[in-house]
Write a protein that binds this DNA or RNA. Structure first.
Lengths: 259, 259
DNA sequence: CGTTCCCTTGACACCGATCAACTCTGGTGG
DNA sequence: CCACCAGAGTTGATCGGTGTCAAGGGAACG
C-alpha cells in the first residue's frame, strides 16, 4: 500500500525496467556529466530488476553476494541490529541509489538493507559491475563521487545524533530528505511523499517512536510542516533549516546550494 | 607533550620522513597485498612532509586544496562545528590514514581536520595523487578499500551514538582504537597510548567532558581498564567487548577477527 | 610562581525513555 | 455484513541518564 500505483503500470517488465532505470541514470547525470554511451552502459546494468516487498531484506548483514543492487524505485534503509533487539538505521536509500557498490571490493557487507516500501531493485552481476568500473573511467569517477557524497551524509548523521536534540534532529532529517528528493525530482515546492513510520524515523534518529510522535506534533503545532497520510509539506523551509542547523553544502548539489 | 620523543630523533628530515612513511605503507600492505614497486610508489608520495602542531588545523572546513594529506605520525580528528559553538568529531585519524583523498574528486571538503597531537603530515600534490590512482590500479584498489573501511567505521559510530548509552559508547571507542592501533603496531597486549583529552572523547561520543570523566571512572572501578598518563591498558577485553557490543568484523581485519 | 590546561566532584535540572492504555484505520475471514 | 485483528499513531505518568553550572585540585610550562 505504500509506493504502488503508477497509473496503469501494465507495460511489460523490460520496458518498465528501463523506464525506472532513468531515475538512476538521471541522478548520476545530474551530479556528473555523462556522455550518451555512458548512460547507455548504465541502462544495461538494469536488465535484471526484481520487486522486493516492504519489510523484506534486500541484503542481510554479513552476507556475501554475487550481485550489487541498485534501488530504482521505492525506499530502503541500511541498518545494524544490536544484541538487545534494538536497531539503528544508518542511512536511507532513495530511488537511484546504490545499495552495496562496496561488495565489488570488500565482499562481506557490514550491515543489512531492508525495503521500507515495495521496491524495484536492479540486480547487477558483480563481474559486470567490475567491467564497468575498469573500462569506463568516467562512470567509475561518477560512482566514486556518489559514494563520497554518501559518506558526507554519514558524517552529517553523526553530527545529528551527537550534538542535536530530538527536534533539531528530525528537522534536519526532513531538510536532508527534501534536498535529496528534489535532486531526483521527487519533491517539488517543499512537498514530498514520506513513506516512513514513526518507528522507522525513531530507529534512524536514535529515539523512540513515542518521542518522535511528540516532536512531530510540535513541528506541526509550530506551523513548520504538515504531515498526513504519508505526505509531507514544508511550510517554512527557512525556519526549519535554522532550527535544524542545516547547511546543504555537504550534499554537493551545486545548483541547489542557494535554494 | 603528547606524541614526542622517539629516542634521539636527530636523523635528517628526508630519512625521518621515509621512516615514518613506512607506517603508511605497512598499513596498506597489511590489508591489501602490494608489490615492491607499488610500495615504492607510495613512498614517493611522502616527499613533502611537514609537522603540524597540536590543536592546529590540517584542513579547514570548506577549503579547497591542491594537496591531499596523509597523517604519518600522531593523531588527528575530523570534526564539524555547530553554530552554537559545540563541535562533533566524526572520525579519528590515526598514523597511516589519509585525511582527504576525496578532494581528488570533490574539491571542497565538508569538515575540518585538526591535529590532536603534534603530527607529521605528508602533503601530496593532487596531480601526483591522480596519476597514481590512474596508472596504479592495484594501489587505487587498496586506497578504495581503505576508504570503504573508513565508511564502515562511520556507520559503527552512528550506531554508537544512536543506540548505546555513555558507558557502552566509550567502551566501544576503546575497542575500536585498540583494534585499529594493533593493526599498525601501536597497540600490544591490550596496551596503547591514548593521547585524547576527556573533552576530545566527549566531542567524539556526543557527551560532555564531565560525563566522560564519570564513565571512565566507572570503567576503572569495574577493573575493565587502567588509564593514566595518557596510557591505556585493557584489563579484560572480553568483558569490555561484551559491554560495548563490539564486533570487529566491520574493520575488515581478517587476521584479527578472532583475537 | 603564576597561569593554563586538564581532571575531578557535587547539586540540580531536564530531555527523552519506559510502560501502559487507548484510538483509528484497513484488512481478513466467518 | 459484521467481528476481529494487526499496525500505526496518540496520550499520560513516571523514571533515569546526561547536561549544566560551579568550584576546586594537580601538573606542566613559561
Amino acid at each position: 500500500m505504500a509506493t504502488q500505483s503508477d497509473i496503469g503500470s501494465v507495460a511489460p517488465i523490460r520496458s518498465a525496467a528501463s523506464r525506472e532505470c532513468e531515475r538512476f541514470v538521471a541522478k548520476l547525470d545530474a551530479t556528473s556529466i555523462l556522455a550518451e554511451d555512458e548512460k547507455q552502459t548504465l541502462r544495461e546494468l538494469c536488465v535484471d530488476t526484481r520487486t522486493v516487498q516492504a519489510r523484506h531484506d534486500i541484503i542481510r548483514e554479513g552476507e556475501t553476494s554475487e550481485q550489487v543492487h541498485i534501488v530504482l524505485k521505492g525506499w530502503a534503509a541500511r541498518y545494524k541490529s544490536l544484541r538487545n533487539g534494538s536497531r539503528q538505521i544508518v542511512a536511507l536509500v532513495l530511488p537511484g541509489d546504490f545499495c552495496d557498490l562496496h561488495v565489488t571490493i570488500l565482499r562481506k557487507i557490514d550491515h543489512g538493507i531492508v525495503a521500507l516500501t515495495p521496491a524495484q531493485v536492479a540486480y547487477v552481476p558483480r563481474r559486470q559491475m567490475e567491467e564497468v568500473l575498469l573500462h569506463r573511467p568516467a562512470l567509475a569517477r561518477a560512482l566514486w563521487r556518489a559514494t563520497l557524497v554518501d559518506e558526507a551524509v554519514l558524517r552529517s548523521w553523526i553530527v545529528n545524533l551527537g550534538r542535536r536534540n530530538a527536534t533539531a534532529r528530525i528537522a534536519h532529517l526532513i531538510c536532508e530528505l527534501h534536498a535529496r528528493l528534489a535532486l531526483i525530482g521527487l519533491a517539488k515546492d517543499g512537498h514530498f511523499r514520506l513513506p516512513l513510520t514513526q518507528e522507522v524515523i525513531a530507529d534512524a534518529m536514535g529515539l523512540t517512536s513515542v518521542h518522535v510522535n511528540r516532536v512531530l506534533q510540535k513541528l506541526r503545532a509550530g506551523k513548520l510542516i504538515v504531515l498526513e497520510g504519508g505526505e509531507l509539506t514544508i511550510l517554512d523551509i527557512g525556519k526549519l533549516r535554522r532550527l535544524a542547523g542545516f547547511d546543504p553544502n555537504y550534499l554537493q548539489h551545486e545548483h541547489l546550494q542557494k535554494s
